[in-house]
Each structure stands twice: as C-alpha cells, then as structure tokens.
Amino acid sequence: MRLMPPIVSAKAIHKHFGPLHVLKGVDLDVAERELVFVIGPSGSGKSTLLRCLNRLEAPSSGSIVVDGIDMLSSKTDINHARQRIGMVFQSFNLYPHMTALGNVTLALRKVVGKSRAEAEVLGRAALERVGLADRAGHRPAELSGGQQQRVAIARAIALEPRVMLFDEPTSALDPELVGSVLAVMRGLRESGMTMIVVSHEMGFARAAADRVVFMDDGLIVEQGPPAQIFESPTHGRTRAFIGQIQRH
C-alpha cells in the first residue's frame, strides 16, 4: 500500500495566526483508499491541518498536492479543486434556508454545472447512501443532529470526491446519535473512500483506521497502525494523551 503514490501529500506545512505558530512543519502523505485518523489534544493543530488541505486556511509555507493538483498554486482553480475534496464539519453547517436535497444539489448545479433534474437524481442517490432518502424535503431544523450530519456527508459525497475530510464529525452530537454517523462513515470506508478523520472516537479508530496520527503542539509526534499507537505508544506525550482519553 505504501508503494502507491500518495493521493494527498502535504510537506513542511507551517501556519501562523498572528503571533501564534499553530503548525510547525507537518508532513503527511495519505495513500489512496487509506483511512487516516488524526488525534491529539485541543489546540494541537489537527483541525488547522485538515483545513489547510482544502485551503480553507492558507498555510504560511509548505506544499500540498491532492490528486495531482497543487493546492497552493495561484494558477489552480481552487473551486474546482475543492470539488474533489469533501469536507464534513463539527457543526454540520447545513444551509438552514434549503431542504436536505437543496443542500446536496447546490454545488452540483452551480459548480459542476448539472441541470436541476440531473442534480436531483444524484442528490437523491447521495441521500440514499446515508439512509435519508425519505428526508429529502426536510429543512435542517426539522432533522436531528445525526440526520443533519448525514445530510452534510451526502452533500460532500454527491460531488464524488477523491478524498473526504472529517473535522470532529460526531463531537456536537448527543451520544445516542453518534452511531448512525459512524455507520455511514464505515460504509464509505468499505466503498474504498480515502478518508482523513479528526475525531475522538477511539473505538471507531481501532476498528476502521489504517493509521493513527498523533499530533501535539503543531507537530506530528508519532504515527502507526491503531494497535501500535493505542497499545504501545513509544512517545511519552502520546501515552499521556491515550491514557487520558481511555479513562473517559
């Protein structure tokens, strides 16, 4: 697997917010069909790293290539490139004034240039994949948190991205709703989607991740298969963090 050329390749990423040095030279390669789990204490820079990958944040320096596209080049059509990188947010960020189907089809129509009819066929298929075909006409306010997050996933996968980024997708959910979202993510994983997930769902990481990356203080401290990181972390900071998480 490691021999394949990486689909995501980030090199020497630095990010400053004013005086804050949030990323201090991060390298991350992700192979096709790989599920990489990023963990670390809050403020470690893991969300910022994720947001740099689709350039929601512009890195201060470094290089990012996704699916052969140089994300940081000014010649790149960033809107076109972002279509290939789906993103799911902690706070769902569904458009409150549109139905579930409207949320899913907006980019299909406006970015990809599909007709409304074509977009709706694809949109319904995406909602079907997250198990919400029957909620197509509902507004976000009429859906539970878990359903909203699944619509948000449908919004991203409808564009047939090559990579999916998940930024703490279950942190804002009531515990009983987490399972439905993780089930959808597991389904995506089985269909061969390349995924980078920032999350504290360690059970999911153990079961589904190919690799766990531990970040602290703007750097990748240690990475490896889940069993290795969770059972026998080599680094003290990793051990402390894992211990803390598992006590909960």
Binding site: S91, N93, K110, V111
Partner: peptide, 24 residues
C-alpha cells in the same frame, strides 16, 4: 461555517454570497 461549508464544496465567493449567505 456557512461560508466554509459552501467554499469546501467548490462554490466561489460570489456564488456563496448569492446562494448561501444572502438568502439567510
């Protein structure tokens, strides 16, 4: 988050403003 979600799906600045931000 509304800006970010829309931009992450590839909508441009003007499209985001017109279809996502202004209606709200």
């Amino acid at each position: 988050g509304q800006w970010e979600a829309a931009r992450s799906t590839g909508l441009g600045f003007g499209q985001t403003l017109l279809h996502v931000i202004l209606p709200q």
